[in-house]
């Protein structure tokens, strides 16, 4: 068992190294995209799938993570040049660190905010989380638009140092994956699933369900923040419009396709959704079919992609992996 896990890990690490050094830039950019979406979806699946708390938060936390990392990375002079609407506040000007601490700060800020949201939401029973987090996403975006001294408003930030590469995204993804599994196969993960299955019964086992839900939410937020930071550095420009509900929606598709509660499924889901939409790009362009030019059909790609999704979901009602992990499948076969 341990050998199987370690060899998976080794293969993943070697692959990341090999891809960064030998793949062409287009392929690397797709892999980067997959890795970042996998990080975001893995963390989203913890609160949504494992703990069963339907939440719509990722876009908010990703935005926070992206802005925090960006502001930590951009040097003070560049900020002064860039902030066109109003001068940056001294506090924003003073922010500066290297990449790793910036990413960690992104995670920390996001999870502190998650904690603050937890207090009103998880104290009471009921499905308030979805509506509160939906609102939260909007508020964050409006904040980013309307605080030119901190975020440069609707213009967004550019010239963000491009520290990120496949090593960063790939390894962060692997670390996120391992941490999620470590949580799932511990008393905390079990308690999260117990809360999902039957909250009253979980309480009757002596579990403080408030804290369990809060742990899950803060952990999700942390990695969404980190993922946002990676995204900022990879794209080098960010603006409030990137972090709409559409982003959350994409992540939702990934985790439902992969299987709610399954981290292995989430990785596969990210590969299929991000890789698939990329691969189908040819559909949007002119095509020659038996010498007949079909003309360009922008949007055809998404139509075909949606149909494929529906077909996949018909065959795997509970997602490709259900709520199992790769390791469970090996366990079963023993």
């Amino acid at each position: 068992m341990k050998a199987i896990k370690l060899s998976f890990l080794a293969v993943a690490i070697v692959f990341v190294w090999f891809a960064q050094n030998h793949f062409d830039p287009y392929a690397v950019s797709i892999l980067n995209n997959i890795a970042i979406f996998a990080i975001l979806a893995l963390s989203y699946n913890l609160i949504n799938g494992v703990a069963g708390q339907f939440s719509l938060e990722p876009n908010g936390f990703v935005a926070i993570g992206a802005y925090v990392t960006a502001l930590f990375l951009i040097p003070a002079e560049t900020k002064l040049d860039m902030f066109a609407l109003e001068d940056p506040t001294p506090f924003v000007l003073a922010m500066h660190t290297s990449f790793l601490p910036a990413l960690i700060m992104s995670g920390v800020v996001a999870s502190v905010l998650a904690f603050i949201l937890s207090i009103p939401v998880f104290r009471v029973r009921g499905d308030y989380l979805a509506i509160v987090t939906l609102g939260f996403g909007f508020i964050i975006r409006i904040f980013a638009m309307n605080q030119p001294t901190m975020t440069n408003g609707a213009l967004g930030l550019n010239d963000i140092p491009d520290n990120a590469n496949l090593y960063w995204t790939g390894f962060t993804m692997i670390v996120t994956f391992v941490i999620m599994l470590n949580i799932i196969y511990s008393k905390y993960g079990r308690a999260m699933k117990a809360v999902r299955d039957d909250e009253d019964a979980a309480t009757a086992m002596g579990i403080n369900t408030f804290w369990i839900k809060t742990y899950a939410f803060m952990t999700s937020a942390f990695f969404e923040g980190v993922g946002g930071g990676l995204m900022a550095s990879l794209l080098t420009t960010i603006a409030p419009d990137q972090f709409t509900f559409l982003l959350t929606f994409q992540l939702l598709i990934i985790i439902v396709l992969g299987g709610l509660g399954s981290m292995s499924g989430t990785i596969l889901g990210a590969i299929l959704v991000m890789g698939g939409t990329e691969w189908l790009r040819f559909l949007d362009q002119n095509m020659d079919i038996f010498g007949y030019n079909t003309g360009a059909h922008p949007g055809l790609r998404m139509v075909v992609f949606s149909i494929l999704l529906v077909i996949l979901m018909l065959f795997a009602r509970r997602g490709l992996f259900g709520n199992k992990e790769l390791t469970d499948i090996f366990r079963r076969n023993k």
């Binding site: 008393k187 079990r190 308690a191 699933k193 117990a194 999902r196 299955d197 039957d198 009253d200 019964a201 979980a202 086992m205 002596g206 579990i207 509660g261 709520n323």
Partner: peptide, 18 residues
């Protein structure tokens, strides 16, 4: 009111949470 998606062993392990 068991934890329906979990194994019997995990159900008992939840009891040991604290």
């Amino acid at each position: 009111r068991l934890f329906k998606s979990m194994s019997v062993l995990d159900n008992v392990l939840i009891g040991f949470h604290n």
